[in-house]
């Protein structure tokens, strides 16, 4: 069921003509986009500070509006209204495009994520593949940004980002494949659907067959690879402030910086969304509506990244690559193989 159908039935329209379908899809897309941006807007200037503060015994913003919430508006408007500096030697089109590509790549991913209550913009058969493909466009944006800034720190940051993404994309996909072995499809809605069954019932509480419970090993692998994919501690080498200032975003100011910043957060949420879809039953959950559960799950992942950020040292770039190629990759293949055997024997 596509979002146009959902909206159509909610509005009491019968079967949809192509024009109505198109219009309703547009409305749906606008809704999803707004939802994602809203989340990032809350996360970026406010929640991140509050969460970090909670981990470090502080209070953080509390003067501007209730709980400091108005800081969201203040931060956003202030950054947008700042002077936009384009460095002299910047490679123009690339420098300007990079932030856009970064944000767009992350936003596109949400198109195929089932968010519950029938909210899903599109449900292609290759949904999962699309998700990974789109998410990894981000690394192009980063390398563009790094190269175009004409700054050595940016350059190092961009190169690091690519090395990291290449090293972690493969384990990520391979681990996701092991889930596909269970479901036999790449379609996201069906992956979610397959997790609705009951795994076991303990004392009247039935545990759904989320793949996190079915294959916890793959789940952990996926989380690690995902952390690296979204570039958070301990894998935040591309922007490691104490080493290479701010990595690829060193030279960005004003609007472009806002986009960069947003893009990063959208990526974290996209990471959370993928995790939720593949391993945590998508929008499933008791009592509350599916959409709320979906939101809770992506925020849980966000919280997790922030926790890691305040408590874990970052690894070195060579170690990072090593962990990726020598550790995660092998483990993910082992996982794939075992899953294949188990699935082959049982099913």
């Amino acid at each position: 069921m596509s979002i146009a159908d959902t909206l159509g039935s909610a509005l009491g329209l019968g079967s949809l003509g192509p024009l109505e379908d198109f219009l309703l899809s547009l409305v749906g897309a606008a809704f999803v986009g707004t939802f994602v941006l809203l989340n990032t807007a809350v996360a970026g200037p406010w929640a991140k500070r509050k969460i970090t503060a909670a981990f470090t015994d502080r209070v953080a913003v509390n003067r501007v509006g209730p709980f400091g919430l108005l800081i969201i508006i203040a931060d956003a408007v202030r950054m947008l209204s700042k002077e936009l500096i384009i460095p002299d030697g910047a490679d123009r089109p690339a420098f300007d495009l990079a932030p856009l590509v970064l944000v767009a790549s992350a936003l596109l991913g949400f198109a195929v994520v089932p968010m519950g209550n029938g909210i899903q913009l599109a449900d292609p058969e290759v949904g999962l593949a699309f998700l990974f493909a789109v998410a990894s466009i981000a690394s192009i944006a980063l390398v563009m940004a790094g190269y175009a800034s004409n700054n050595k720190y940016s350059m190092l940051g961009g190169l690091r980002a690519v090395a990291q993404n290449v090293a972690y994309e493969i384990p990520l996909v391979v681990t996701a494949m092991s889930v596909v072995l269970f479901t036999g499809t790449l379609q996201t809605s069906q992956i979610v659907g397959a997790q609705a069954e009951t795994l076991i019932t303990i004392a009247g509480v039935s545990i759904p067959s989320w793949y996190a419970f079915v294959n916890p090993f793959a789940f952990v692998l996926f989380i690690v690879a995902n952390m690296a994919e979204v570039g958070r501690n301990p894998f935040d080498v591309p922007e490691a402030p104490t080493e290479i200032v701010a990595g690829y975003q060193t030279e960005y100011s004003s609007v472009y910086f806002v986009l960069m910043y947003l893009g990063e957060f959208i990526h974290i949420f996209l990471g959370g969304a993928i995790l939720a879809t593949v391993f945590l039953g998508g929008p499933a959950g008791p009592v509350l509506p599916g959409f709320v559960w979906f939101t809770i799950k992506i925020w849980a992942f966000f919280l997790f990244t922030q926790w890691a950020r305040s408590a874990l040292p970052r690894v070195r770039i060579d170690q990072l690559i090593e962990i990726g190629w020598k550790g995660l990759l092998e483990l993910s293949f082992v996982n794939l193989l075992l899953t294949a055997i188990i699935v082959g024997v049982i099913v």
Binding site: R49, R58, A60, V61, V245, A246, T250, S253, F257
Partner: peptide, 16 residues
């Protein structure tokens, strides 16, 4: 905790 006043986010790059 200067961040209480909404001004405690240190940025490493002067551009931001």
């Amino acid at each position: 905790d200067l961040d209480r006043f909404g001004s405690g986010v240190p940025r490493a790059s002067p551009r931001q």
